[in-house]
Design a protein around this nucleic acid. Structure first.
Length: 814
RNA sequence: GCCGAGGUGGCGAAAUUGGCAAACGCACAGGUUUCAAAAACCUGCGAGAGUAAUCUCUUGAGGGUUCAAGUCCCUCCCUCGGCACCA
């Protein structure tokens, strides 16, 4: 072999071309081999190019994909572009460049970067959410939702910047202020399209049992759905035939309820208008709190405010006492019934409020243990704090003495009989605001007709293409820029053919990513979102990796849309109710020094530069080696150099003379490493896989000569991590075919022919005993006792006990 | 406040799940090479004592279980992420 320098630039480009030409990464829609669908989140193609964080996730799953292909599986590893979104639109507002043009440029740059990393995507299935042929189906899904009553229009508050005169997405609100101008963001009511995800709350929760997600991901989904079981209790309004239901998880504390509180938006207030003697003040209070940002209202440290509705009272159904009614913005209108029963002694929020307004407090739950009870007793005329735990009931009529758990059931039963309450389940999850008053998104395919109301665009007219506009700026009133395009807005009603107007709102960023993994199964289908046979072959996704930042919303939304498509038969029944079998997530890559990478800090690492200076294989291996995959980790350029040194060493192996015989010791290490690498890849423990590859390389490098069989086996297991150098060395060594076509080694447990037993005295390791496996206790102890170093410790002492663990340890207790 | 993850050398981290703590890599020091430097290679590298063999100590703090604890149990401290008036 010829002595030459390791030049990744040349060999990497070469192999990337060869792989592409031979089309080795194409997934086949039918195969005798088992299918394996591995998915990474498709990126938003921003102007700043691929981030080293993308490389981490993509390389990791690329390794999995390459390994599975070598194991003979039919692997689908697709890539596409989630290209609708604000940054591109803002760029268009600033520069006048059409978002589609910017998107095209950006996706090309991203694609080139991915190619130069040697990622084994099947580019024949590339998709783009901004492609009309793609968003045709995103719109189709919306229409199906509408037809099933799961999409509806409602007045909802939006974030409104009165200085920019623009509706803001939640992401654009930074601690209550507008991201661009810094002025305070207000709430403004606007008609919005909503999706009824709450109808799916129970299934989204229950079906978490069917999938393999990390526990913390499941927990955050559960948390987000926020199911709680309790009761709805009806409070009658005194001297009227009106009543107000409240939701509580603690019906056992009903006797301690001394007032009720309504959210400012509660409709009852309007109905009681004539009876409320201080209505003017109440109206003022409501006006003020409506203007506040929701986030502001929720801030805990903020003092609770409220106002009593004078002239009206409610009746506590437990004891028929007349109790006051308050309005306060500490009660959320969207949760439960928008009204709560206040039990000051057993709820800290009610406690704070009651103390401020001097409202009566009745203790109804006492803790079981005496020492706790003393603390809760009156001291100096008031309670010190609320007791929120369970216990046994006091001051609760015939329920006194019962424990909370039983009282919850009994009190609800009792209320049921008197038609003043029943069991009820409540969710934190709210319906999904699906409208954006923006340009760069999928137009919502709906038409409004004065006569026929909201009508979906006929399916044969899809896609509703985004029209060209002069300015991408929203209107003065906060409408989408599309609203200015009168000739586009004006249309015919699909039902009565009369004149009608198009919806000008567009869909949120999430819309395109809710179902993209289905489209990969059949990306150019013109008749359906994807062919049923292809869906049922490829789906569910076997392994989905993405960022922790998407584990609540994207995951929840896409699970919802998938379930819906499954319900209406767009996804065949046999595919099952969940889109992703297994989910994992990668940690962030931080800047050198441990802070977040950002342009303003100037610590952004550009993968292009790393590839140019060190090579793609080095970048890949470094990112896998830098630390545990699921953990955030700072970049370290010196570490990159270390990995490059490792690959130089590997490159140097071809200089070694070939050995006729195989080194026994090396043989053992190769078997061990193959097994370790196989296992580690599946467990995402890439850092230790690389480390064991380094150990093996060091071993091979330390030998004077190297056997060809050993070199081949090393290259095969190195291949998924550093595919270019592996292919090149495979070729240079004169092996048959390509490295990528080789079979992955089966991981076998090898019979250890050498075992070393730790010898301890009083639990402290003092020596080792090198021996074969299966040494008996008697024999082992005999030999161990005779060891010089052990003798020293045993001398003049009495052996009290000997602990023997086969093939592992002998411990003398003296 | 609640939930989650974590705390091991100068740094990123390993530790077959209870059996020689610090593998692998970085940084650092010394050496080889060189007119010199870089690169490369070799050696050393948790702390303390000793010329040395070797010994003692060491996994956020304190207690416990065990022949044996980084790993299991209890109490506490700190860091980072998420949620946050959800009744």
């Amino acid at each position: 072999m010829v002595k030459d320098k390791y030049d990744p630039r040349e060999i990497e480009a070469k192999w990337q071309k060869i792989w592409e030409k031979k089309d080795v990464f194409r997934a086949k829609d039918t195969s005798k081999n088992p299918k394996f669908y591995v998915l990474v989140e498709f990126p938003y193609p921003s102007g700043s190019g691929l981030h080293v964080g993308h490389c981490r996730s993509y390389t990791a799953l690329d390794i999995v994909a390459r390994k599975r292909r070598m194991e003979g599986q039919n692997v689908l590893f697709p890539m596409g572009w989630d290209a609708f979104g604000l940054p591109t639109e803002n760029y268009a507002i600033k520069t006048g460049i059409h978002p589609a043009e910017a998107t095209k440029e950006n996706t090309e740059a991203f694609k080139n970067q991915m190619r130069s990393l040697g990622l084994s995507f099947d580019w024949s299935r590339e998709i783009n959410t901004t492609d009309p042929e793609y968003y045709k189906w995103t719109q189709w899904i919306f229409i199906q939702l509408f037809k099933k009553g799961l999409a509806y229009k409602a007045k909802m508050p939006i974030n409104w910047c009165s200085s920019c005169k623009i509706g803001l997405a939640n992401e654009e609100v930074v601690s209550g202020n507008c991201e661009r101008c810094g002025s305070k963001v207000e709430r403004k009511e606007k008609e919005q399209w909503m999706l009824k995800i709450t109808d799916y709350a129970d299934r989204l929760l229950k079906d978490l049992n069917l999938v393999d997600y990390p526990e913390r991901v499941k927990l955050s989904q559960e948390e987000w759905i926020g199911r709680s079981y309790g009761a709805e209790i009806i409070f009658k309004i005194h001297e009227s035939n009106l009543s107000v239901p409240v939701f509580t998880t603690r019906p056992d504390t009903l006797f301690g309820c001394t007032y009720i509180v309504l959210a400012p938006e509660h409709p009852l207030i309007e109905k009681l208008k004539d009876k409320i003697s201080n209505y003017n003040q109440v109206a003022k209070y409501i006006e003020r709190s409506k203007k506040k940002m929701e986030k502001e209202r929720l801030a805990e440290d903020k003092e609770k405010t409220g106002i009593e509705l004078l002239g009206v009272k409610a009746t506590n159904p437990a004891n028929n006492r007349k109790i006051p009614i308050f309005v306060s913005d500490y009660v959320l209108s969207q949760y439960g019934t928008g009204a709560v029963m206040a039990v000051p002694v057993h709820d800290s929020r009610d406690f704070v409020f009651a103390r401020k307004y001097n409202l009566p407090m009745i203790e109804v739950i006492q803790h079981g243990r005496r020492e706790r009870r003393r603390k809760l007793d009156f001291s100096g005329g008031g309670f010190k704090s609320a007791y929120e735990g369970e216990g046994f009931l006091v001051n609760s009529g015939k329920f006194s003495g019962m424990v909370s758990e039983e009282a919850k059931k009994r009190i609800v039963e009792w209320l049921k009989v008197r038609v003043s309450g029943s069991e009820k389940v409540s969710y934190k999850l709210r319906d999904w605001i699906f409208s954006r008053q923006r340009y760069w998104g999928e137009p919502i395919p709906m038409v409004f007709c004065e006569k026929c109301g909201w009508q979906p665009v006929p399916e044969e007219d899809l896609p509703v293409k985004l029209p060209e506009v002069k300015s991408y700026q929203p209107t003065e009133e906060g409408e989408s820029p599309l609203a200015k395009k009168e000739e586009w807005v004006k249309t015919k009603c699909p039902v009565c053919r009369g004149s009608a107007r198009r919806e000008t709102d567009v869909m949120p960023n999430w819309a395109g990513s809710d179902w993209y993994y289905i489209r990969y199964a059949d990306p150019s289908n013109e008749k359906k979102l994807a062919d049923s046979k292809k869906i049922s072959y490829w789906l569910p996704v076997d392994w989905y990796n993405g960022g922790m930042e998407h584990t609540t919303l994207h995951l929840l939304y896409s699970r919802f849309i998938y379930k819906f498509l499954w319900d209406i038969g767009a996804v065949p029944k046999e595919t099952g109710p969940e889109p992703y079998r297994k989910r994992t997530s990668h940690g962030m890559i931080l800047g050198q020094g441990g802070t977040k990478m950002s342009k303003s800090k100037g610590n952004v690492i550009n993968p292009n530069d790393v590839i140019k200076d060190f090579g793609a294989d080095t970048l890949r291996v470094y990112e896998m080696f830098m630390g545990p995959f699921e953990q955030a980790i700072p970049w370290d350029t010196k570490g990159v150099k270390g990995v490059r040194r490792f690959l130089e060493k590997v490159w140097g192996l071809k200089e070694k003379p070939f050995a006729e015989n195989e080194n026994k010791e090396t043989e053992r290490i190769i078997l061990k490493t193959s097994k370790k690498v196989s296992e580690d890849i599946e467990l995402l423990k890439f850092n230790t896989a690389v480390s064991s590859l380094m150990i093996l390389a060091n071993k091979l490098d330390s030998q004077k000569e190297i056997s060809l069989a050993h070199l081949a086996r090393f290259l095969i297991i190195l291949f998924p991590f550093a595919p270019h150098i592996s292919e090149e060395l495979w070729l240079l060594a004169g092996f048959k075919g390509m490295c990528s076509e080789q079979e992955w080694p089966e991981s076998k447990d090898q019979e250890e022919d050498k075992i070393s037993i730790t010898i301890q005295v009083n639990g402290k390791a003092r020596d080792r005993l090198e021996t074969g496996p299966g040494l008996s206790e008697k024999k082992a102890v005999e030999v161990a006792k005779e060891k010089e170093r052990i003798k020293k410790y045993l001398q003049g002492k009495k052996i009290k006990k000997v602990v023997f663990v086969k093939n592992k340890v002998i411990n003398f207790v003296v």
